[in-house]
């Protein structure tokens, strides 16, 4: 189910922990799996359980507890807009509204072309550069309507590394 590359990554994570603590590699295994598969289906989670030799229930527990796992398909780019207090005090509601209007979706929804999922999330720890959002591995800070439009244009241009 997983590529050799992903399996090698999981093996490297597994090696960080004592021999009898395979479960410690679970969060990393789920992340690596999600990066390849797009989201964590039941079948994928059972595969991860077998891979680490742990019960499937332990995989479901972790996958449903942590916010970075997607249990349903999401858009190619997930726009995670921080709405916690420092961002809120600096206009995060306007950021969310701007993106919602530009994309024609409400927070929590995915555009019809499958390109974008818009989400409001809690504090991402970049409070001094509010308002901000995260897309994939990258933070975008001190957002303005202009920088948001530029970001959407770049993401639509198809580059995964838009920095």
């Amino acid at each position: 189910m997983l590529s050799e590359k992903s399996l090698a990554k999981i093996a490297r994570e597994r090696a960080k922990y004592p021999a009898d603590q395979a479960r410690s590699a679970l969060l990393a295994a789920l992340r690596i799996t999600q990066e390849e598969q797009g989201y964590l289906s039941d079948a994928v989670m059972e595969y991860v359980a077998d891979l680490l030799g742990i019960p499937a229930i332990q995989v479901y527990e972790a996958a449903t507890f942590y916010s970075m796992y997607d249990l349903k398909p999401v858009g190619r780019h997930k726009l995670c807009v921080c709405g916690s207090v420092s961002c809120f005090l600096n206009g995060s509601d306007a950021v969310l509204q701007h993106l919602s209007e530009r994309l024609g979706v409400d927070p929590g929804e995915t555009t019809a072309d499958g390109l974008f999922t818009l989400q409001e999330v809690e504090c991402l720890g970049a409070c001094k550069d509010a308002p901000m959002l995260q897309v994939g591995d990258h933070y975008y800070e001190n957002l303005t309507p202009e920088s948001l439009d530029a970001l959407l244009a770049k993401l639509r241009g198809g580059s995964d590394d838009v920095r």
């Binding site: 395979a22 479960r23 679970l26 992340r31 332990q58 972790a62």
Partner: peptide, 20 residues
Amino acid sequence: AGAYICGEETALMEALEGKK
């Protein structure tokens, strides 16, 4: 993997053990 509570030291240890 995304959970504020893991900043609590024993929750962090649980997470490090692959648990909630």
